[in-house]
Design a binder for these strands. Structure first.
Lengths: 343, 343
DNA sequence: ATGAAAGCGCTAACAC
DNA sequence: GTGTTAGCGCTTTCAT
């Protein structure tokens, strides 16, 4: 019922000490005797005091607030990244400001102003593709650390955390080759995608390395809609009977391909299921987001988890705040291959 | 290069006025002459001044910060809600603090303390199922407005924005009935789900209203995995040959059911595709998240969009801040039926 | 219509 | 070890 705010002064009075002492106890900085420390803490407890962070950051130098800019938080990749960042930060008693710059980055300037106005200690940008040099310059002037959590390689001049798309493609391709596949297709994605380009690089390079054929008609673009993927798969398999394995650009493509293969009366995966008349096709998908759909059917996936990228980005930011002038780092997360029965 | 912060004082000097005047211009409150106003604004412009919100909220009464608590932002529903909230708030020049209380609500107390310590003007909770009475009491004492953005009915004592699950089920069922279906099944979800219970209520009620049979063996639980849904669908259709339509608990279930129906050699949707030997099964799904997979195949969906819930929650919060003592409101969002060819 | 001055709650020098 | 005190940048009476 009493909306009166409890301040550090109240705590000091209740504990019979000065505000300085309380402040020092709060930040754990000073050399305070155990006895006093305990008295202060119990005063805090009984009064139900919560430290006013605004005031703290007004006077002090750190706010313990990190800003996040994404184009739209509803994109699963960025939602996962945000979740990872938030986990790390909250464990450190820090908090996260969430801002959205829109699909085309229209509000990016507003996001930056907003965040800097609130005194964040640093900004993590998901997909920095909209970041202009001017903005990076501005951040530098404000001494605001910038960290980019991305899906593909984007910058040289700021810290970037990203998955190793090329390596992932290589691992996936090798996995298929080691399971005896020689004619491998790549399905899905748009040709304008940087992520896809990186993956195709790894895919193609690995084929060449193993002396296997790389046919451009085996690389097909495809909407991420499942039914499109199913259709494309049927088409591909009909026209190119030699293909025995498909590398799928993302989870929904893999799901579509799965149903496409099944729908043709063929089988996916392990040999024991193979019938005389059906052809067996191996599927392997890229997937940075843990989709419930993935666990069953048992498809093999290769990925750097988006959450992991969030963890790294948050940790990198924490370091960067402590060492603002350290050299720029690119952290490239190694992929993990999760084998699930089908190859 | 100059990390010196530009304060309101600098602006005042540059414009040849007092800080008060600048402050009044910033908040648009005072009766300031157009001429002065303009001088101040151009000073702000040339100096690149950004208002220090911490200081503003320390002295003033509003922070323009809203807190959001979700269990995990990577859950698509909450990500959508967050996106909606953020859109509204940013348009108002406000910002959003994102906190995660964990799948089991373990960190909820920490989230609340954290947010209140940062002086948020209000807190939106996604899924208030972890909110104890004690916490609600605490928020009330701190005069912190609480708004709940939920999937189902949860509270009576605080503002809640939620979808109308029962009405959605009714609309979906009526849609099927009007398209001639008499034997309708419900597939998916767990029996412990409140959302599902509300939907089943609407479903069953509508059947009764139309004098149609409600058979409990036509209501089947199912994991949200697509393949499980496909299997369950085949099973259901095999054992109950009369069933001609299935109401699916969520998008992934509908997708699975789709492939299940197709996999049996039956057809989904419009009559023109119907063959002599195949049976036609209508599918309709619930879906609060716009999943790319939905657009193709053309399945009919019924939903209250999660983003819409975010919009409403944000708007409700804005109202609530202005009128803290207004009566508690439950905003129940009407569902929309998106017909896409199959019925 | 504008300015002077008193804090908001806290931290950080600097005393003791 | 602990207390005193001067601000952080802003809003807000209260004068003018």
């Amino acid at each position: 019922m009493n909306p009166k705010k409890i301040t550090i002064t109240d705590v000091a009075q209740h504990a019979g000490v000065s505000v300085t002492t309380v402040s020092l106890v709060l930040s754990g900085k000073g050399r305070i005797s155990d006895k006093t420390c305990h008295r202060v803490n119990s005063a805090i407890e009984t009064l139900g005091y919560v430290r006013n962070q605004q005031a703290a950051m007004l006077r002090g130098s750190v706010s313990n607030v990190i800003g996040l800019i994404v184009s739209d938080i509803s994109e699963p990749f960025y939602a996962e990244v945000a979740a990872g960042i938030s986990e790390i930060l909250e464990a450190q008693g820090k908090v996260l400001f969430l801002t959205q710059c829109g699909k085309n980055g229209l509000h990016l300037a507003r996001c930056l102003d907003s965040l800097s106005g609130y005194g964040v200690d640093g900004i993590i940008v998901g997909s920095g593709r909209f970041l202009s040099d001017e903005m990076k310059q501005k951040a530098r002037e404000m001494r605001l650390p910038l960290v980019c959590a991305a899906r593909a390689s984007e910058f040289d001049d700021i810290d970037v955390i990203r998955p190793d798309n090329s390596q992932a493609a290589k691992m996936a391709t090798e996995y298929l080759i080691k399971h005896g596949h020689r004619q491998i297709a790549y399905l899905g994605g748009e040709s304008s995608s940087l992520t896809r380009a990186e993956r195709l690089g790894g895919f193609c390079g690995t084929l060449i390395q193993y002396g296997l054929p790389f046919k451009s008609e085996w690389v097909v673009e495809c909407d991420c809609k499942q039914q499109d993927a199913a259709e494309a798969t049927k088409n591909l398999l009909n026209h190119h009977p030699k293909i025995t394995a498909i590398l799928c650009h993302k989870a929904s493509i893999a799901m579509g391909a799965y149903f496409g293969v099944i729908g043709m009366g063929n089988s996916v995966g392990k040999d024991e299921n193979e019938s005389y008349y059906s052809r067996q096709v191996a599927l392997i998908g890229f997937g940075d987001v843990p989709e419930a759909e993935l666990t069953d059917p048992p498809l093999t996936f290769i990925s750097s988890s988006a959450r992991e990228i969030g963890y790294s980005a948050a940790n990198r930011m924490l370091q960067r705040i402590d060492a603002p002038d350290e050299q720029v780092q690119h952290i490239i997360l190694p992929p993990k291959l999760i084998a699930r029965g089908s190859a």
